[in-house]
């Protein structure tokens, strides 16, 4: 048996252990634990209060189980991230993001500050409480396997051009969720607009350092794929690092501005708050 160029590094367990321990390093994309140690603390937030901190790699994914009232900040570090996001009610995951209701009930197709991410059960799973990008998309979902195979030649999560859907399948699987549990996602930091004839017009990125804050209105499973938007016109697979930070805040109350913004939204928060109260959440 050959050991190649490893010079006996794994010749016995002691040397294997020393070899593995010698590999600790810092990467441009990694979780930061404890979260207070993040090199990128959100402005105005005491790092000691952070409950999560991570940079998701280009073509990577993350999956978070967050408490009700958690504020989750997504930041597009270099302007090349695309965060395709799914949210599920962590208590009853059959309740999950419904993009049709998310667009139809607020009478608004384009996501922005104050927009609720609605489930099909008449409740708000999360609220977009801050947005410095304005370039988002609730029409196209994450890229599919067939799309990435056609465009880049490969869609596998372990390959050079993972599809958003392949990443979301793995993210969901970590929580026992299967393909059937993955409805269309919303994508942040890469925008499209709809022309009069229905054509999608690419608006792309708003530039580096843009961020979106999501407020969890129920206990959530949050799945995030960081893969190029399917309508990204560039032939290359371009994705950038995605920063994810979380801290404890409080869920929306009925007299908050986002809740009183329209009668539909007010009723959505009424449903959500009553559900949480009844369930002891």
């Amino acid at each position: 048996m050959t050991t190649g160029g490893r010079e006996g590094a794994l010749a016995d367990v002691g040397r294997a252990r020393a070899d593995a321990r010698g590999r600790a390093a810092v990467s441009a994309w990694m979780p930061y634990l404890p979260p207070a140690d993040t090199p990128y603390p959100p402005e105005g937030i005491d790092p000691a209060t952070l409950t999560w901190a991570e940079t998701v790699a280009p073509g990577g994914y993350t999956h978070l189980r967050v408490a009700r009232g958690t504020r989750l900040r997504l930041e597009d570090a270099d302007g090349e991230a695309c965060a395709s996001v799914l949210v599920h009610n962590a208590v009853e995951p059959g309740e999950r993001l419904n993009v049709a209701d998310t667009q139809k009930i607020p009478w608004q197709a384009y996501l922005g500050a104050g927009h609720p991410l609605l489930s099909g059960d008449g409740r708000v799973l999360a609220t977009i409480v801050a947005d410095t990008s304005g370039r988002h998309d609730a029409f196209c979902g994450a890229s599919s396997d067939a799309w990435n195979e056609a465009k880049y030649g490969d869609a596998a999560a372990e390959g050079p051009s993972p599809s958003g859907h392949a990443l979301l399948r793995l993210a969901g699987a970590k929580h026992g969720l299967e393909t059937r549990d993955l409805p269309p996602a919303v994508s942040f930091f890469k925008g499209v607009r709809v022309a009069a004839d229905g054509t999608l017009e690419w608006t792309g990125s708003a530039g580096p350092g843009r961020r979106v804050d999501l407020l969890a209105e129920l206990p959530l499973i949050v799945l995030i794929a960081n893969a190029p938007h399917p309508r990204d016109p560039r032939p290359d697979y371009v994705a950038g690092p995605l920063r994810v930070h979380a801290w404890r805040s409080r869920p929306t109350a009925l007299d908050d501005a986002v809740a009183v913004a329209s009668p539909e939204r007010e009723r959505a928060y009424r449903n959500t708050i009553a559900y949480a109260g009844l369930a002891g959440l």
């Binding site: 029409f139 196209c140 599919s144 067939a146 059937r180 269309p184 004839d197 054509t199 999608l200 309508r231």
Partner: peptide, 27 residues
């Protein structure tokens, strides 16, 4: 199963008309 998002993304248009391919969640 049917995916409105993949159908829209693939054809680059939000409306369904003659010739629209109704695509699955795998595209």
């Amino acid at each position: 199963r049917y995916s409105a998002a993949d159908t829209i993304a693939w054809q680059g248009n939000v409306y369904v008309r003659t010739g629209t391919v109704l695509r699955s969640n795998l595209g």
